[in-house]
Write a protein that binds this DNA or RNA. Structure first.
Lengths: 192, 192
DNA sequence: CGGAAACTTCAGGAATTCCTGAAATTTCAG
DNA sequence: CTGAAATTTCAGGAATTCCTGAAGTTTCCG
């Protein structure tokens, strides 16, 4: 840790902190931050040395990161040790993180909510609770489906789209008008 | 806790669990889940009773939720106690959560990254680290700006838009062509 | 094969976070 | 004002999570 350039040290500490606020432990956050900025893959001993953690802690942290598909072991020729790196593309990292969180947290939540919605409510309080759960279910599902779909776009398409921000809504209105002019009634692209 | 309908109890337990995976403590998650499904505002004693927590724990939990702007105290006529409720609209909750997380975690991260980018790198490793930080900075900033902008749309506009998913990209292409046909060169709506 | 290098597992101590009851503070009806 | 109800604060014990070193397992070179 003391041997890291201040630039890198601050980054690593910050992401350790952030990790712990997002339910990822500090060590794991720091390890990933280090891999992220490293110009080459690192082995477990190098990581333990750089961050001042025990070898076994690093081993567990890397295992955790692999289970999130955020890094994978990689061999260098003539070296028995495993080397780890973060993907080159930040979008890949972002997407992987989103996919894993979806699988681990969002899907189970949707399953739970769907189960609750199948129950027969007894009384007004339960009926109301169920209605609220339906609203939450629909919101979470909408966001998830949207994310799945948009996640398929490659960054070259997605980035300009995001830079438009809410302007897309205006373009959409325009499209409405044009298609109306062009040939009368038809279904909106993905209306309810 | 034992007096809650199973429907509600499961929901509350699930969100306690989810909360703890997202860096929010279990108690706070459970309190909010309970407020969320409740048909009327609840006071601290009712919450403590329903969830089996101490009164002081509930007090701290509610304070935390207020600091996140997820609930606010409310008085009933002829009752000195404070009553708490979650907003009626799930979008409001979602947006508030996003805004607070942005303020607490994203902004400080961007500040840290900008600071790092201002440093003069000494050596290739630092130059590379800085480049990586720039990529992360740009991604986080893009997502944040996009979110700020799109968050201004009201759900009535936003929901149909989200249901289109990646189709918006196609509409955009169409728009490209039309504006080209309509009058030759002009800037793309929000290109780099 | 033998054994050393690399990696993993895991029991238990360290550190952190959580939760409670008691005491302090605030609020407000009378 | 007074005092009781409501709320908040907070020290310290409880529970949880984290981290380590030692022991165990796997891998593969020679």
């Amino acid at each position: 840790m003391e041997t890291l350039p201040p630039l890198v040290r601050d980054f690593v500490l910050h992401f350790g902190e952030m990790g712990s606020r997002w339910g990822i432990n500090r060590t794991v956050g720091q390890i990933y931050a280090l891999l992220f900025v490293s110009p080459r893959p690192l082995n477990a001993d190098e990581i333990a040395e750089a961050l001042g953690f025990s070898r076994s802690n690093v081993s567990m942290g890397l295992k955790e990161l692999q289970s999130w598909r955020l890094t994978q072991p990689h061999h260098l020729p003539g070296d028995r040790r495993e080397y780890f790196a973060a993907p080159q593309d930040v979008w890949t990292i972002f997407r992987t993180l989103a996919e894993e969180r979806k699988k681990r947290e969002v899907e189970p939540t949707l399953t739970m909510l769907r189960g609750a919605l199948l129950q027969t409510p007894s009384g007004d309080a339960e009926r109301h609770a169920q209605q609220r759960m339906r609203e939450m279910h629909d919101l979470v599902e909408l966001i998830t489906l949207w994310f799945d779909d948009v996640g398929k776009l490659d960054p070259a398409t997605l980035v300009p789209l995001m830079k438009m921000g809410s302007t897309v809504a205006k373009v959409l209105e325009m499209k409405q008008k044009i298609t109306q002019l062009a040939g009368g009634r038809q279904r909106t692209v993905a209306a309810e």
